[in-house]
Computed example of a mutant assay.
Amino acid sequence: MNEALLDIGEVARLSGLAPSALRFYESKGLIEPAGRNGHRRAYRPVVLERLGVIKCARSAGFSIAEVASFLTARPGDGMRERLTAKADSLDDQIAQLTRLRDSLRHAAVCEHDPVVECPDFRRAIGRVPARD
């Protein structure tokens, strides 16, 4: 078998994914083995880049179906509009997480008792509008 191929165990180790996740992604058409090395699946090294895209998209909240659509997207198939909508959604999530991060940093040094009642804490996470 071609020495450039990586067996499923090596791909799992290098990608940080369990072999079962690799088999699942294969069953969903997200990745494709290049062949077999004995009874073990073997992949081209480029699969690691694809798995990086999959992991990033999944961590951003993409469903398996959305990842599959993204990986096969072609210009003019409506994917650009869906990707723009997903990017807008991610912007909202980032803003929310930024507010949460800022409120947690404030809470770590705040003397208010309880911290969650602190006006600065609550404003930081967006629950209470700032007073002018």
Rank of each mutant, 00 (worst) to 15 (best):
I54R: 05
D88K: 10
R44Q: 11
S27P: 08
E10F: 01
V128M: 15
G126K: 14
S63T: 15
E10A: 05
E3I: 07
G35C: 09
Y43N: 05
A87P: 00
G35L: 05
A18V: 06
A12P: 00
C56H: 13
L48C: 05
R23E: 09
R13N: 05
F62R: 03
P129S: 15
I8V: 11
V11H: 01
R101V: 06
A85R: 12
Q96K: 14
D132M: 14
G78A: 03
H106Q: 08
P114S: 08
G16S: 06
A95G: 09
T98W: 08
R44Y: 06
D113P: 01
L14F: 02
H106A: 11
E3A: 11
S15P: 01
L17D: 00
F70I: 04
P114H: 09
V109D: 12
K86I: 03
Y43D: 01
P45Y: 04
N2M: 11
N2S: 13
E81F: 00
R101C: 09
Q93F: 04
V115T: 12
L51W: 01
K86S: 05
A107R: 02
V46P: 02
V47L: 09
K55R: 15
V47G: 00
R101H: 11
V46C: 10
F62T: 03
T72N: 11
A73T: 02
E26M: 08
S69M: 09
T84N: 02
I94F: 07
L83G: 05
P114R: 10
A130W: 14
R131Q: 15
S15A: 10
V11A: 00
C110T: 05
D7H: 10
Q93K: 11
L14C: 00
Q93S: 10
F24C: 04
M79P: 00
K28M: 15
H112M: 02
R127C: 15
A21W: 06
G126Y: 14
Q96H: 13
A124K: 08
G52R: 10
R13W: 02
S103V: 09
K86L: 08
D102M: 09
A21S: 12
E111I: 05
S69D: 12
D91V: 12
S59F: 06
K55A: 14
R13T: 06
G61K: 06
G9S: 03
L51I: 07
A107I: 03
Y25D: 07
A21K: 12
H106C: 04
P19K: 01
A130S: 14
A87F: 02
R36A: 13
R105K: 12
S89W: 11
N37H: 13
